[in-house]
Amino acid sequence: MAGGWAKEGAEQEQIERTLDDAVELARSRLPQGKSRKYCEECDEMIPEARRLAVPGVRLCVVCQNEHDKKQSNTSSYNRRGSKDSQLR
Rank of each mutant, 00 (worst) to 15 (best):
M1N: 13
L59E: 02
K34S: 08
C42P: 15
E13P: 00
T18L: 04
D43T: 12
E16F: 13
E16V: 13
G9Q: 12
T74R: 07
D43V: 00
G3D: 02
S72I: 13
S85R: 04
G9R: 09
V23T: 14
E66G: 10
E48V: 07
R88S: 10
A49T: 09
I15A: 11
A26M: 02
E40I: 01
H67Y: 02
D21A: 08
G56Y: 06
V54D: 04
A22V: 10
A10E: 15
R27E: 09
V23C: 05
S82C: 11
W5C: 09
T18Y: 07
R51T: 06
V57M: 08
D43W: 07
K69W: 11
D43L: 13
G9C: 02
V23R: 00
G3A: 11
A6L: 08
G9A: 03
E8Q: 01
I46F: 05
T74A: 15
R51P: 01
Q71D: 13
Q64V: 02
A22L: 14
M1H: 15
K83T: 08
H67P: 06
K7P: 05
P55C: 12
C60N: 02
L19E: 15
G56S: 04
N78M: 01
E8K: 14
I15R: 09
A10H: 10
P47S: 05
K34L: 01
K69N: 04
R36A: 08
E24C: 12
R29Q: 14
E13I: 03
E40G: 11
L52R: 09
T18M: 14
I46M: 00
T74N: 11
K7E: 12
H67N: 04
A10W: 01
C63Y: 04
A53H: 10
V61G: 15
V57T: 08
M45I: 10
A22F: 03
V57F: 08
R17Q: 08
C39M: 04
G3L: 12
R36H: 11
P55G: 03
R27M: 10
C42A: 12
K83M: 13
A49Y: 03
A53G: 07
I46D: 01
S28V: 05
K83R: 15
W5M: 13
T18I: 14
E16Q: 13
L30C: 07
S85D: 02
D84N: 05
Q71Y: 14
E11T: 09
E44Q: 04
D43C: 09
Q14K: 14
R58Q: 09
E48N: 12
G9K: 05
K69M: 07
S82M: 13
E41W: 15
C39R: 01
R27G: 02
K83P: 14
Y38L: 03
G4T: 03
K83N: 08
C60R: 04
S75V: 07
W5L: 03
R79N: 15
A6W: 04
V57P: 07
K70A: 03
A26F: 08
A6G: 01
R50A: 01
R58C: 15
D21N: 04
R58N: 14
V23Q: 00
K70I: 11
R58Y: 08
I46L: 02
M1C: 09
K70P: 06
C60G: 05
K7C: 11
D43E: 09
N78Y: 11
L25P: 05
R36N: 00
E13M: 03
K34I: 10
R36E: 05
L25I: 13
C42T: 03
L19V: 00
G9H: 10
H67W: 01
